[in-house]
Design a protein around this nucleic acid. Structure first.
Lengths: 239, 239
DNA sequence: AAATGTGAAGGATTTCACAGCG
DNA sequence: CGCTGTGAAATCCTTCACATTT
């Protein structure tokens, strides 16, 4: 349930009648939010966070676009998909924009997250300070290696995978970051889904089959970078 | 915005059985390789590596497609872009495929890479064993913190950024992974480009402006995952 | 004047569907 | 047969351009 209990305000003009998770405002460019839009929404959030810190109150589509190297039309069209409106001649209200993007990404409440696999990468993830401010809280860490279980990493104690299901339930975990060796990634992923996790961010270079997941494959990104530096001399930076 | 792709015809050469290191086929679906294709090529490489290990000699577009959750037409069309051909009724030769994809991504030679920033993430990257087999060698590590310089991480000794330029030159470094705090990322990126690095894989959640780079923003990926798990119940897993 | 909101145009990418080959 | 190679169709995404709003 999205709770937009902000006081009415002249910048914000959304139809927030009964927004159940799957319903969309209808002054939007109707239809489902395109994947390309979703991916840009996360970038807008990043920039808007900066702007808010600097005390900026409004932002125009074209200034925001410039910061990201995209077109202003693209920005406006993305905002329409999530039903955000601005003010002609002035722009969009930064604070509202942040709330509405968060809301449409399912980030109005902090998402409770776990890390599975306490190798170098898993430990780095646990200690990374940037999650909290972007909507995620790491509530537990897991490994199978008995030598690692019970050890403190950051400010969490590593637990056995046997405790997975109960932790997911009692702690209301929704997402997991999977940082285990590729050989076991699929197997552990199945355990995660069956324990009730709803999505996995997978750092192993493997497909995970049926469930909901996103891969982060650093070597693959390097390979794409390699291609760009070879072929086009004047390529646009992207992310 | 301006689309300044200025790559009409660079070098066009055949690469069927005659072998010449850097060649670009012409029985391709002419024109530049689409970004979407490039990103899938890296995934094909991953799967093909597995298949090769298992001793498979050929693979059909549809079996490969199934493994990645995409369509076989997509696979065939991607292969056409890089001028790879298969055999009717049989499929594609795994070993050749690997070579040709590597070739078209600029990976026929190992790419010499550095890591800048020896925090938790930088150290995890240095120790990650998966780069070598996918075409990258980490040849040096850098930090600015005097307490870290001279320290051994993995099997490299951390160097000062002052040595950057000379290392890039003498070691023929082409790519860098940037794992420094967001506040200094842009500044360090400029140093990297001016030292002669041709592409940067940026782990800080910031845009880097003009040069050639790709961002890996873990929190942003989590946010996209969050969206997917909220909205569509029957979403396709992707990467 | 400055900026939004949006049809319509234009590209890019994906998928279809099927002829033809081994 | 099974599978490739490929035009053509379909879909998705981006950008243009301009009327409209504050």
């Amino acid at each position: 349930m999205s709770n937009l209990s902000h006081s009415p305000n002249r910048w914000l003009r959304v139809n927030l009648d009964a927004m159940s998770p799957t319903s969309r405002p209808r002054n939007s460019r109707s239809g489902p939010v395109p994947a390309a839009t979703v991916s840009r929404l996360t970038l807008y959030l990043r920039e808007l966070g900066d702007l808010a810190e600097k005390g900026e109150e409004t932002i125009s589509s074209s200034r925001l676009a410039d910061r990201l190297g995209i077109t202003s039309a693209s920005v406006r069209s993305d905002f329409q998909f999530i039903g955000v409106s601005g003010v002609s001649g002035r722009g969009y209200n930064v604070r509202n924009l942040i709330e509405q993007i968060k809301d449409s990404l399912g980030l109005s409440l902090v998402q409770r997250t776990i890390v599975v696999g306490m190798g170098n990468l898993g430990r780095a993830l646990i200690s990374y300070p940037g999650f909290q401010s972007r909507g995620f809280e790491i509530v537990a860490a897991f490994d199978t290696d008995p030598r690692k279980i019970g050890v403190r990493v950051g400010h969490r104690v590593v637990q056995s995978l046997e405790e997975l299901e109960s932790v997911v339930k009692t702690q209301k975990v929704s997402l997991a970051m999977l940082a285990v060796p590729a050989e076991v990634a699929l197997e552990v992923a199945k355990q995660l889904w069956s324990a009730g996790v709803s999505g996995i961010l997978n750092f192993a270079p493997t497909s995970l089959g049926e469930g909901e997941y996103v891969n982060v494959d650093v070597a693959a990104e390097l390979q794409q970078l390699s291609f760009r530096t070879r072929s086009k001399g004047a390529a646009r930076a992207a992310e």
